[in-house]
Nucleic acid binder design. Structure first.
Length: 152
DNA sequence: CCAGGGATCCCCT
DNA sequence: GGGGATCCCTGGC
């Protein structure tokens, strides 16, 4: 899969971040080292995948909102368009929360690939707090981006 | 547009 | 320990 849409959640400075309300058993992975997986369950039926990216003890994370298949035919093209669908397609659930990308036999792997020619920036989707912060990043050329594809 | 669906967390007993 | 609001969404009207 190629990741085409992400959002940043900044932790202590960001009222939209789960970490903003403080550390709890659910949110604990956010304080882990970069590459720690944080998965939460939302709206009674969806999971969302996040990766801790800040220094250990600093709960910044990236929400993975959409990806597209690298090879035609492996998955329906839009199976990973949107954070809930992406988790369903990749069979990601809370059991992965707290695991790590760089452990032995990791549950997920992340590889660096070519950057898209353009990365668009906008406000984040579906939040109420800090709704004006432009912390969503997406490839405007990808049809797998969820929701609005306009800037800001 | 709207509601389903269930974990989580807050805040009060 | 319990009731209720909330929620980083999606599919179906």
């Amino acid at each position: 899969m190629r990741i085409v849409e992400t959002e940043a959640y900044l932790g202590a400075d960001d009222p939209a971040a789960h970490a903003f309300r403080g550390r709890s058993p659910r949110t604990d992975p956010l304080w882990g080292p970069p590459g720690t997986v944080y998965v939460y369950f939302v709206y009674g039926m969806h999971h969302c995948l996040n990766l801790a990216v800040d220094a250990p003890g600093v709960p910044g994370c990236v929400l993975i909102r959409a990806a597209e298949p690298l090879e035609e035919g492996t998955l329906p093209f839009d199976a990973c368009r949107g954070p809930g669908r992406l988790c369903r397609a990749l069979r990601i659930d809370r059991r992965l929360s707290g695991r790590h990308l760089f452990e032995d036999d990791p549950p997920l792997t992340l590889r660096e690939g070519p950057s898209p020619p353009l990365v668009a920036v906008s406000t984040r989707v579906g939040i109420r707090e800090a709704a004006d912060r432009e912390l969503r990043f997406f490839d405007p050329g990808s049809r797998a981006v969820s929701g609005r594809r306009t800037v800001v």
